[in-house]
């Protein structure tokens, strides 16, 4: 590996990461599988959700933060399940308290249960409130370059367009928009949602994305730990291919062996 790719790192909100794969921690069979899959993914940033405690029940059940200690992982609390500005902002404030002042959050304000597409107007409003309240906001949005630019202008530390609906596994539906978002941006752009298999992750990275955040593609695989390993390699391969600069695509053939020296 060249020195340029071995020193190639992802910087989000001033922190440096070696891995460009961010993973969610939902939908796994149990905590053990969660831990093994995340270990195999090599991810350094992991998302969590915040929910009501089960009062008086399962006090012995391990908590996700026991399995993924904040000393080892950068914990990225999300606002999944929030359909309005107020609940998203409240969720972030609770998460910051839960994590002793850690202020990095993944903002998602959803618009519709069927598609889980973002409510862009509410997302913009919530982002503005959270940035003013000293949060470092990584924001889930649609693949609209104008909205992505606006979220960056509001002070979000990373913009995370969907590749396809959350949990759909449909892959990169609009690669040209993703590329345009990447080209416009000065903050990291991460594909968040829609990846189904390793080649989708590689495509996102080849488009120039700074990283990919995924959950279901790993958790819903028949063998999540093996898929986590595949995703790790796909992200690395896609990134190296992007840095290497692909050959131009041509309509017709171009012989790889020399014409000169033919003996017939």
């Amino acid at each position: 590996m060249s020195s340029s790719s071995s020193t190639d790192s992802l910087v989000i909100a001033g922190r440096t990461y070696r891995s460009r794969l961010l993973v969610g921690t939902g939908k796994y069979k149990d905590m053990d599988e969660t831990a093994r899959a995340i270990d195999a993914s090599g991810a350094e940033i992991v998302t969590i959700a915040v929910r009501r405690t089960n009062i008086g029940q399962n006090n012995d059940e391990p908590n996700i933060l026991d399995v993924l200690p904040p000393e080892r992982y950068t914990i990225l609390p999300n606002t999944a399940g929030c359909y309005d500005v107020d609940t998203a902002v409240r969720t972030c404030r609770l998460a910051r308290e839960l994590l002793d002042g850690h202020n990095l959050v993944k903002l998602e304000v959803l618009g519709d249960e069927k598609t889980l597409f973002p409510d862009v107007m509410a997302t913009l409003k919530a982002a503005e409130i959270l940035v003013k309240d000293d949060f470092q906001v990584m924001v889930y949005t649609n693949d609209d370059p104008i909205v992505a630019r606006e979220l960056e202008a509001l002070g979000c530390v990373a913009v995370m367009p969907l590749a396809a609906p959350i949990g759909s596994g449909l892959g990169i539906r609009n690669p040209l928009n993703i590329r345009t978002i990447v080209e416009n941006a000065k903050v990291p752009i991460l594909v968040d949602a829609g990846v189904g298999t390793a080649s989708d992750a590689a495509v996102a990275m080849e488009l120039g994305c700074d990283g990919v955040l995924m959950n279901t593609a790993i958790a819903a695989a028949k063998n999540p730990v093996l898929m986590a390993s595949a995703m790790r390699k796909a992200i690395e391969a896609g990134r190296e291919a992007f840095l290497a600069g692909r050959m131009p695509a041509k309509r017709f053939a171009s012989a790889s062996s020399p014409i000169e020296g033919l003996f017939f």
């Binding site: 959700a49 929910r51 996700i64 999944a80 994590l99 959950n215």
Partner: peptide, 10 residues
């Protein structure tokens, strides 16, 4: 009163 904790999520 709401008491919340971290859970697995994406």
């Amino acid at each position: 009163v709401e008491i919340i904790q971290a859970v697995g999520g994406g």
